[in-house]
Design a protein around this nucleic acid. Structure first.
Lengths: 336, 336
DNA sequence: CTGAAAGCGCTAACAA
DNA sequence: TTGTTAGCGCTTTCAG
């Protein structure tokens, strides 16, 4: 920058003005500076500029999800990226692996880099300690889940209702023995979905069999294992509600392996690529993760723009897609 | 930091020393500083620190892929993230959308943020202009594809061989009319795969029918459209090689819609989640995108560590997974 | 072992 | 319209 100023025969401040398109620069001074910058291949250092700038915006945000590799998370990322790009904001991304320690380390790392805001899929049960540090200064928006003790905007799917509708759908096909396979109960999403399942069962006057509730299942492999355990029960379920994409895939693989893929009904949450071509075609309650990501980013930018209204809980509806796997009827001799 | 120094009754430099764990600080001065830092909830600003530091490392890298939402890309990201995290380096990610303009804008944005290095899935055909700016200062590693005129480390799959093997596999099941559906020919990966297809056809003494080469197909929807066009030919192909994940899914959907999913053989590149449960089960040449991402990151960090050996071309082998869709034999009356 | 001064690349506030 | 001075939060250099 010094060199540019020298070559153009102006002061540093004038260069700064030209670079930033500030007014009050004579056109020919401006062109002289631009030429000099071009010749010297000068590009401003936005990091240094942001350090000096009084509003101290870094024009960067951080997105923390459970794994960048997870299709739901990367679709959320997609939505976030779209709105960030419109605002010329870049985004750091990292995976928490559902580990509170990793989450805290990442949060600290990004806060130290003075990101303007954070979009978080919270892992920890208690974020107080972390947010003692971040809270005041950096706006946070939670996405997909909320966190106890964390007062911030939240964007989630209507998990409870989606789970209720999914379960009810199974019940409407004559099933009475409906099992649920669900994620870590530390995750609000999993708790809400379990609640929706419970709601539907209660509404139908059916008891909740403890054996039919497979909790803390968190991977495709575990989903398959959980399914096998369910089917090995003395009185196995006739329908399965898999409360997460990976669990659905794992469970269905289990059913196929047991030769039950066309006997036992299964419905999941989140759509899978090519889910229509799977045998049997997947019935799912489809979230719209890109929209969820967009909304979270919009909320974050609103905060950055000075919105200090009370925190919002944005709930996004979930769309049923019934393709077959969830419409397998209960066996005729269901009376046992 | 000033406040910490004041509270601890020491100079700025001493605080800096304690924070960075530099030697030559008496233990009790150190604890005094640490206590003060804790009390004041002081956390260093790593951005400002990096600005002042002579080596000027930002401990950040950028990853540019076609879309963060693409399963191949996010798996690469996963690999990159794993090795970046080991080094306490954060990563910016962004999608180029296969647009050279977007790519250039992102490259400039990240260079202006002085990332230490860049991992890139190149879109442009000519990167000279961009790299005039970046080349000297910021190491770049290409991943998945290489770019003409770009002298840098590259990590790709063995695309040509994978395509050759896939095509040969179809030929070995008696097919003679084998079509290829492939991506933009500006993409090196697509060109190499087309070459592999050509290799296999030539080795079998078969001509390349222009009509059987569907190029510049770049989405699931377009893949389906391309498939339908192929099957509408007077003499349609009996086997399809889909040179990319999304194209395979689109093409298969087309076959299913035409009721030909069990008549026409199809083999793809890249595995799809639940590909084993699709009807028919997918035969694919599976890349290992996480490994590719890891290797790219390792190469980048080697450069950052001062490795100035000649640029490397790392080629990763592709693993065949034959599950059914690629083993459908040619029809008996294949004579004409 | 510790501190004072200078400066990283840039912008803010004010002056000319 | 332009330039000067100070300073962002930190590290460096060199002197104590």
């Amino acid at each position: 920058m010094r060199d540019v100023a020298a070559l153009a025969g102006v002061s540093l401040k004038t260069v700064s003005r030209v670079i930033n398109g500030e007014p009050n620069v004579s056109p020919d001074t401006a062109t002289r500076v631009q030429l000099a910058a071009k010749r010297l291949r000068y590009y401003p250092d936005v990091v240094a500029a942001n350090l000096a700038r009084s509003d101290r915006q870094s024009r960067s945000i951080a997105l923390l999800t459970s794994s960048v590799d997870n299709p739901f998370c990367s679709a959320v990322f997609r939505g976030v990226e779209e709105v960030a790009r419109e605002r010329q904001v870049v985004v750091f991304t990292a995976s928490t692996e559902e580990s509170p320690q990793t989450e805290e380390a990442l949060l600290t790392a990004f806060a130290s880099r003075s990101v303007d805001g954070i979009i978080l899929t919270p892992t920890s049960q208690d974020h107080r300690a972390i947010f003692d540090r971040i809270d005041a200064s950096i706006p946070v928006v939670c996405v997909d889940r909320y966190a106890p003790g964390l007062q911030c905007d939240v964007v989630t799917a209507n998990n409870r209702e989606a789970a209720r509708a999914a379960t009810e759908h199974l019940l409407s096909h004559g099933h009475k023995r409906v099992a649920i396979i669900t994620d870590f109960s530390t995750i609000s999403t999993a708790r809400d979905r379990l609640q929706g399942y419970t709601d539907a069962m209660a509404a139908a006057g059916l008891p909740i069999e403890k054996d039919y509730v497979a909790q803390d299942v968190n991977s495709e492999a575990d989903g398959m294992a959980a399914l096998c355990a369910l089917m090995a029960l003395p009185v196995p379920p006739t329908a399965i509600f898999a409360s997460q994409l990976l669990l659905m895939v794992g469970a269905l693989r289990g059913l196929r392996q047991l030769g039950l893929a066309h006997e036992v009904a299964i419905i999941g949450i989140d759509d899978v690529r090519a889910g229509d071509m799977i045998d049997p075609p997947l019935s799912v309650m489809a979230q719209n993760p890109v929209a969820i990501g967009r909304m979270a980013a919009e909320r974050l930018f609103a905060r950055l723009d000075g919105d200090d209204s009370p925190t919002q809980d944005i709930v996004v509806e979930v769309a049923p897609i019934f393709r077959g796997s969830g419409e397998i009827p209960a066996p005729a001799n269901h009376g046992e």
